[in-house]
């Protein structure tokens, strides 16, 4: 899969070259990702976010090619290796969930009240395609779309200090002092969304780069019932960009 995506990307760049290149820029970007996966508005069942922390080290590495159409405008494409992750600890009340039991056709479904800790450490290969505007010699802005393949999925955590009401909020009450869950494999393998970026040249070929990505759809497919609200990837990246001299 990885190879296929790189192949498509290289082919794409080749096509642009064939179209009659006049001016090309090549860059390598490195930075750190900060962000999380969240619904646009939290459901009422989430009562408190006790702690949120982005992964201390969530690297972002990109190879970028820009084909300038004229003095100001160009088209950029990247191949990106993105680590997107965070840890969140929250308190929920009557949150509907469905938990599969290993080796069993049944599942514990019901409404959970208690604490939840979720850890996400996903690694994506991302292909952004962006319109690029060079405002000055110093500033450049980009906006476009990205497509990503989830190469290493990790989405797991614990439900604790609470209880599950089986089936519905009036079902039998079962104490849950600490139960693990692992939804890594349940995540969507593909992600896509919007990307915007801003660069400021600070020294010769080196620029500071900030970018923001926001996914169009949830981490989980609609038929996944353990998490009933959409969790979209919303991440920012801060880093530097180095432009290779021609």
């Amino acid at each position: 899969m990885k190879k296929r995506i790189i192949g498509i990307c290289v082919a794409g760049l080749f096509c642009l070259t064939e179209a009659g290149a006049q001016s090309w820029d090549y860059k390598v970007n490195a930075g750190l990702n900060f962000g999380g996966s969240a619904p646009f508005s939290l459901p009422a069942e989430v009562r408190e976010i006790e702690q949120y922390s982005p992964n201390a080290f969530a690297p972002h590495l990109a190879l970028e090619a820009i084909r300038w159409i004229n003095e100001r405008w160009g088209v950029a494409a990247q191949i990106t290796w993105d680590h997107k992750g965070f840890t969140v600890r929250d308190r929920v009340k009557n949150l509907y969930t469905e938990i599969d039991i290993e080796g069993n056709s049944g599942a514990q479904t019901g409404n959970f009240t208690g604490k939840n800790t979720t850890e996400v450490h996903n690694i994506y290969f991302t292909l952004p395609v962006m319109a690029t505007y060079r405002g000055s010699n110093r500033w450049a802005s980009q906006a476009g779309f990205y497509f990503a393949y989830l190469y290493r999925p990790v989405f797991k955590g614990q439900a604790s200090d609470g209880y599950l009401r089986r089936g519905s909020p009036i079902g039998e009450k079962i104490n849950v002092p600490n139960a693990g869950f692992d939804f890594s494999k349940n995540q969507n393998r593909f992600d896509y969304g919007l990307i915007v970026a801003e660069e400021c040249r600070i020294y010769r070929n080196v620029a500071l780069r900030g970018q923001l990505t926001c996914a169009f759809h949830s981490l989980f497919p609609d038929q996944f019932k353990a998490i009933t609200f959409a969790m979209r990837n919303i991440y920012g990246t801060l880093g530097i960009s180095y432009q290779f001299s021609e």
């Binding site: 069942e45 949120y52 009340k93 009557n94």
Partner: peptide
């Protein structure tokens, strides 16, 4: 952003 998004608590659905 997260903190400001916490909605008002829903009415209790339990009937024990």
């Amino acid at each position: 952003l997260f903190a400001s998004c916490i909605q008002d608590e829903a009415l209790n659905p339990e009937a024990d």
